[in-house]
């Protein structure tokens, strides 16, 4: 978000949600009204010797290449900026783009809507606002309905050269991640796994001891409580302009959601 414009027309920014300061230098951003600006960075010839540390946001400026009056005319304090990088295909079925977190979840919902074919559930699709800040969209969205169950569809961590441990075993292309968490309904997670096996949908397991950090956490405590589960598309480089997913995982996430709904879910029997 734009928090200031100085007399030379350089723009001050602050983060909305978990912005990674390490990926900002020399990065092109774009405003809602289509203005492109580059985050200022020192030429190496004039280096301050601080290559090892990301420039803190408080010292970060954006250059729109316009005179100050033009900047002030076309942009206002409070306007928001996003990464300008456009979606691109990599090898195989890999896709890289900013905002795959959580637009691929949105896409999975749109696809699932095409595949849902049952009266067993009344299914409401919630395209929530403000998840990255306080999850407020999911809180009010869930409250508006009398829900029996909910599945939050987000992205989670896949293996990459600098990710090890539990997430080192999650791979792009090996299917949606079914979350097992202390705040999610275990029976739903279990049923999702069974449905995946039954329908030959590839899947991976994501055990999370605490809260999931997704809309699921908020929806689960809506009103007097909702049985909830979380399904995630595996992703690399979260919260950068170069997030990477396997497209097959989006399609399979949609298939898994639809299969769970079409079979009546975890509580039929």
């Amino acid at each position: 978000m734009i928090t200031g414009i100085n007399d030379e027309g350089f723009v001050k920014i602050d983060k909305v949600g978990g912005v990674d300061a390490r990926v900002l230098q020399d990065t092109v951003l774009v405003s809602e009204n289509g203005l492109y600006g580059t985050v200022c960075c020192l030429p190496p010839h004039l280096t301050d010797g601080n290559e090892d540390k990301a420039t803190p946001l408080a010292k970060t400026w954006v250059d729109f290449g316009l005179p100050a009056e033009e900047v002030k005319r076309q942009l206002r304090l409070g306007d928001t900026l996003t990464f300008a990088a456009k979606p691109q295909k990599l090898l195989g079925d890999k896709i890289t783009s900013p905002a795959l977190d959580d637009r691929c979840g949105v896409a999975a919902l749109l696809r699932a809507a095409e595949l849902i074919d049952t009266e067993a559930y009344k299914v409401i699709l919630l395209f929530s606002a403000q998840e990255e800040t306080y999850g407020t969209g999911a809180k009010t969205g869930a409250f508006a309905f009398d829900l029996d169950e909910a599945v939050a569809v987000d992205v989670s961590f896949a293996s990459q050269p600098d990710v090890s441990g539990q997430y080192g075993k999650i791979e792009l292309g090996k299917g949606p991640m079914i979350c097992f968490s202390s705040v999610m309904d275990r029976r739903m997670s279990q049923k999702l796994t069974e449905v995946a096996k039954e329908k030959n949908i590839p899947y991976q397991l994501e055990p999370i001891a605490g809260a999931t950090g997704t809309n699921g956490d908020h929806i689960a405590v809506s009103k007097s409580g909702v049985k909830a589960a979380v399904v995630s598309v595996p992703q690399r480089y979260m919260h950068t302009p170069c997030e990477v997913i396997s497209f097959a995982d989006v399609e399979n996430t949609a298939r898994l959601l639809a299969a769970y709904i079409n079979c009546g879910g975890a509580f039929r029997d």
Partner: peptide, 25 residues
């Protein structure tokens, strides 16, 4: 400082790639 998260092209066929970084979380 300008490298993490950037898109690049590799080799004479300009194969697209990205410079990855460990998720901040």
């Amino acid at each position: 400082r300008v490298l993490p998260g950037k898109a690049v092209t590799v080799g004479k066929n300009h194969i697209p790639g990205v410079i990855g970084v460990k998720p901040i979380h």
